[in-house]
Design a protein around this nucleic acid. Sequence first.
RNA 1: GACCCUAUCGUCUAGAGGCCUAGGACAAUACCCUUUCACGGUAUGAACCGGGGUUCGAAUCCCCGUGGGGUCGCCA
Length: 469
Amino acid sequence: MTVSPPAVRTRFAPSPTGYLHIGGARTALFAWAYARHHGGQFILRIEDTDVARSTPEAVQAILDGMQWLGLAHDEGPFYQMQRMARYKEVIGQMLAAGTAYHCYTSIEALDALRAEQEANKEKPRYDGLWRPEPGKTLPSIPPGLSPVVRFRNPTGGVVAWDDLVKWRIEISNAELDDFIIARADGTPTYNFCVVVDDWDMRISHVIRGDDHVNNTPRQINLLQALGAPVPRYGHVSMILGDDGTKLSKRHGAVSVMQYDENGYLPEAVLNYLARLGWSHGDEEIFSLEQFVEWFDLDHITASAAQFNTEKLNWLNAHYIKLADDARLGGEIVRRLAEEGVTATAHPDPALIAGLYKDRVVNLNELADCAHPFYAAVHPSDELAAQHLTAAAKAALADLRRRLASADFSPEALSKTLKETLAATGMKMPQVAIPLRVALLGQPQSPAIDRVLAVLGREETLRRLDQIGL
RNA sequence: GACCCUAUCGUCUAGAGGCCUAGGACAAUACCCUUUCACGGUAUGAACCGGGGUUCGAAUCCCCGUGGGGUCGCCA
């Protein structure tokens, strides 16, 4: 008889109190890749029990972000607010079993206790006043006060687990207090919901941020009190901002969708995030498929990693070069539209994308490059004075005559350009740069013959006429 | 303050006792290419936090410092 290996089931469990930020995206990517690598399931769970701070907009933002990145879930999204009945059922069972108890200490009393402990430079923790013990007499229940439910945490020994990224972690039970699992209004709290969910959803590997390390021993104790299996845990380190400090709004792009707005391709963000804190030898550039094949938890760095926009930019430029022209053309249309510019069918946005894609770092730059093709061009006085000199105009006039009847393929245009050079005795830059200024309002562009070919005869002549030759 | 985690070029990292006079990538610098600006190519500089051990031998193992991060809520 063969025993089939337990299924790998991972989850991403954000709370909808804001966007999907870059750190969360990386955690999601790792959890997703781990499930995919092992042929398991990836579950999306929305932890919305903080009613005051959770919003439907934030839920949508998370869903949008996951979709933009292409991280599809196999089950869910599950919403914790819809599982209240189940949580209450388990709390009832724990109360009955004596693994949890009612506590009537008020918030004010708790605050006072905490203040006192901090003043004594002690670690703030619940004092166990209402914890039942054999032979202990509990205080009399104060009238008019609804109790919270606390977990009866073990008092001795240590909780230890072999973390998938940080190896063995041990935390003494003496460091833990009897934390609240249900508020006075009866709603369950985070650590409790997570445990019941991970149990019910048969999560095998909990891959989450470093900031949850301190929750893990509490959750393990809870799981054990419930007689539930304990999953494996892997705590991925945090991402720090460009300046080495904690990631925050100060660092600009916090939401993954902000990266879309800033002109990043999802595959570039994914590749960058994958490589931030994880490695496969010297590999730097790889597809999502390749990543899934290679991904394992042993090669994740245990320490926090600093975000580096320049490297992301490099990857983004790389993926733009690889991207299909039609797709990039679509991005040009979409981004120009946001500026109120309509990119028409002529010239074809895809052709412009092909012209510029190997010289830009992001999609917004690409759209900027395309902009003069679709809008009237007015060279600045400074540029005109510098480049549209009498001599230059004479050369352009010569060129204009030839262009009126020339073939507009890049090869033929290159030849036509050379004819003008021969006729006027000028060097290529002496003609090409004024031509760029006349046609695009800028002294730099890709090879001018290619620009002419994309712009087309009609528009080229029109723009040339506009500078008054 | 307590507890937990962590420490290789500016940054991301390779490295799991001898393959290391420490490798790759981004960024930087220089040169080449060039029809301008870019792209691209080539080259150069740049690191094992400090101190003790263990060992024939340590970036790799142990201890102590120090730095960085995280957590200490009727938030998640």
